[in-house]
Design a protein around this nucleic acid. Sequence first.
RNA 1: GACCCCAUCGUCUAGCCUGGCCCAGGACGUAUCCCUUUCACGGAUAAAACGCGGGUUCGAAUCCCGCUGGGGUCACCA
Length: 497
Amino acid sequence: MSAPRVRIAPSPTGNLHVGTARAALFNYLFAKHYNGTFILRIEDTDVRRSDKKYEQNIFKGLRWLGIDPDEGPEQGGPYGPYRQSERAATYGKYIRQLLEAGKAFYCFHTKEELESEKKEQMQNKLPARHVCEHKAFSREEIEQKKVSGRESIIRFDVSTYQDPGPHNPQITFQDIIRDQVHFFTRLLGDFSIAKSLDVPLYNFAVVIDDYEMKITHVIRGEDHIPNTPKQLLIAWALGWTQKSTDGVGDLQAPWTYAHLPLILGPDRSKLSKRHGATSVDEYRSQGYLPEALFNFMALLGWSPGDDREILPKKDLIEAFSLMHMQHSGAIFDTTKLDWMNSEYIKKLTTKQFFNDSGGFFPPEHTDYDERYNLSVSAVEQPRLKKLSDIGERTGYFYRQPEYERELLRWKNTSDAEILNSLRRSEDILAKLDSSSSKEAIEKAFLDEIGERDKGPLLWPLRVALSGKKASPGPFEIMAILGIDESRNRINAAQKLI
RNA sequence: GACCCCAUCGUCUAGCCUGGCCCAGGACGUAUCCCUUUCACGGAUAAAACGCGGGUUCGAAUCCCGCUGGGGUCACCA
C-alpha cells in the first residue's frame, strides 16, 4: 500500500477520553505499520463548547501515551492550519459553491418547528427527517427574510443526489472492517451543513478537511456509521469521488473507511462518565503506565492473531492490521488493565520505577537518601498493580508503625510466648553488624531457629517491623531499615505486650 | 419509533473469509494445590463459551435465512 494518511479529529470539549485515545492508537498503529502519516486535527468549530485547556489536555495525553502526530496544531505540516476554527475561509468557499450550484440552501425554520416535526414523525413510526420546502425560495425572498432578522441555517439539498449506479436508491460504501454498508437515500432529510458561510457544522467540516488534508483512510468509531452517508453526499456534490473499482458504476468514497467497534462500560453501553474514569488523565493519576494503557487499549477489539498479549509499541506496529479487527464492542475491563500494568511495572528498572512512582511515595521519603528509597522501591515493585498503591504500602519505612497489639499474636500463642519470641529476635540481631545484608540477616536467623519456630518467631517480628498484616518478609525489611532501627521497633513491640 | 451495526467462557480474545485438524485454544479474573511466617512473585490443576430455530452439506462455531438479544445514531454537538 502506498503511504496512507490518517487522522484523529477530537473536539476540545473535554479531557482526552479513552475512546478517543484508542481511536488515535489504531490510526497511529495503522499509519506506522505502513510508513504513513498520522495527523491530529482539532475540531473546534463550536466555539462555545471548545476550550484551549482541553486542547492542551489532548496534546499532553497523546504525548504521554507515545502517540505523536506527524502533523497537527503543534507540529504544523503542509496542509494546515490544523484547527477548524482557523479554516473558516476554506469552508466558506465550498459552502458558497454548493449554494450557487443549488445543492445547498437557506432554511428559516425555527428549532421549535423542527422539534415538533420530528416528534410527530416518530409518533407516526416514520423516520425522523426534515425535507425542507425553503429550498424553493428565490434569491429575493431569502434576502428579504435575512434583512428582517430571521434566523437561518444552511442545509444540503438531498434531492439533488442522483446515484448513476445500479444501487440507485441506496448509498453504499466499502468498510475495511464491515465490508459493504448500505443506506436508503430516501430516509435522509435535508441535513444541516453550516450555521452560516463561516461557521460550518461537523458533517460538512470533516469532509472538507479530510479532502483538503489528503486523508486516505478514515478510521473512527462505529458511532459514526450513521453520519457516513451524509458525508459521502457532500463529497460527491463537490465532485470528490473515486472511480469505481468493481465496475458497477456507483459513486465511490474519496477515501477508505474503517469503523472501529466501540469501547464499552461494564453494562455494555458506550463508555461514559457514569462508568467511572473515562479520561486518560485519570488513569495516569491512578498510577497506570502509558505503555500498559497503550498495550491494553490495542487489545480491545484487536489481536495479533496469536497468543501474545504483552506487546510493546514496536511489536504492535509490526503486527497491526485492520483485517484482524473484532466487529463487536469491547468492555473496558480495568481488572485486566491492572494485570497488564503490573506486568509493565515489573519490566522497569528499579531506578525507572522510582522515577515514575516517586510522586506516590509517602511525603517523608524526601528526608531519606536515594539509596534508601531505591531499596524500598525494589521490594515493592513486583507487588504493585498501580503506582499509586505505593504510598499506603510503604509508610512504615519512613515512620514508626502504629498497630493493634493483637496483631503481634501468631495463631494462639500466649503473651509470654510473643514476648519471648521478640526477645529471641532481638538477641539474634544483637550479634549482627549494624549494616548487615539481607542474606546475612537471614542466615543468622535460620541458623538459630528450627523449622517449627518459623511462624511463632517470624510473624511477631514482621509485625513489629511493619505494623502490617501483610508485608514483604522480615529479612528484607530489616535489611532496609537497618539493625538499629529494627531493634528499636522490636523494643517498642515488647512494650505493647 | 425509524435506520444502521453486532453476537465464541464473567471479561479480552483465537478459530469464521478458504466447512472436517475444535466434544473449541490462550489470557485476565475466580477456585484448589505447591512454594511460603504474612502478602506478593513463581509453578500446577480445575470450573467456565460457539444465543435460539431452520436450511445447505457426508460433515457447520465456521456458509445462508429467520428469530431473539445487545448496542449505536437520529442537534443550528462533534
